[in-house]
Computed example of a mutant assay.
Amino acid sequence: MPIDLYAGIPVSDYPAALAWYERLLGTAPAYVAGDTEAVWELAEHRSIFVEHRPEHAGHALVTIFVDDLDTFVAAAAERGIEPARRETYPNGVRKAEFRDLDGNELSIGGAPL
């Protein structure tokens, strides 16, 4: 069964969030779906979006797994975005937790070293 993912992150300041997510993800959105929504396609049929919804801002929890966590974190740091926290689970899986301007949590996970 094919699986699509379209995960949303509500934000209170759309222009500021757009700039922050561009720096974190290292790219402009794949498309802008209107004056208040921008979408990044992470892989085929797997996207995240930010949307101006101030009444819900700050409550998102999203985790994305990448092949090379260290490279992702280093690239984000070069663009001025540092993780708020790093974690290693007992099974060796690692996670770097980033928090946007509203406090939404976007974590990047990676396989054990």
Results as ranks from 00 to 15, higher is better:
100 D>S: 01
77 A>D: 11
7 A>F: 09
105 E>Y: 00
19 A>P: 02
4 D>K: 15
38 A>E: 11
35 D>R: 12
111 A>L: 13
75 A>H: 09
19 A>G: 01
60 A>D: 07
25 L>Y: 08
4 D>H: 10
83 P>T: 10
45 H>E: 05
112 P>N: 11
17 A>T: 04
111 A>N: 11
43 A>H: 06
54 P>M: 08
5 L>V: 15
13 D>W: 02
14 Y>R: 05
94 R>W: 04
102 D>E: 02
16 A>Y: 08
60 A>L: 04
34 G>Q: 12
15 P>K: 12
5 L>S: 13
50 V>G: 01
55 E>Q: 15
52 H>I: 01
84 A>R: 09
104 N>R: 04
54 P>S: 05
69 L>F: 12
7 A>E: 04
76 A>S: 11
16 A>I: 07
42 L>N: 04
81 I>G: 00
68 D>S: 12
103 G>D: 00
111 A>T: 13
71 T>I: 02
109 G>C: 10
47 S>N: 12
102 D>C: 03
108 I>L: 05
70 D>Y: 03
41 E>H: 02
66 V>M: 10
98 F>C: 03
48 I>A: 01
25 L>H: 07
89 Y>F: 15
29 P>R: 07
99 R>Q: 13
1 M>G: 15
64 I>A: 07
54 P>T: 10
47 S>F: 00
34 G>C: 11
17 A>I: 05
36 T>V: 12
21 Y>K: 01
99 R>L: 13
25 L>E: 05
53 R>G: 00
45 H>K: 14
3 I>Y: 06
87 E>I: 12
53 R>M: 11
75 A>G: 11
54 P>V: 05
108 I>A: 06
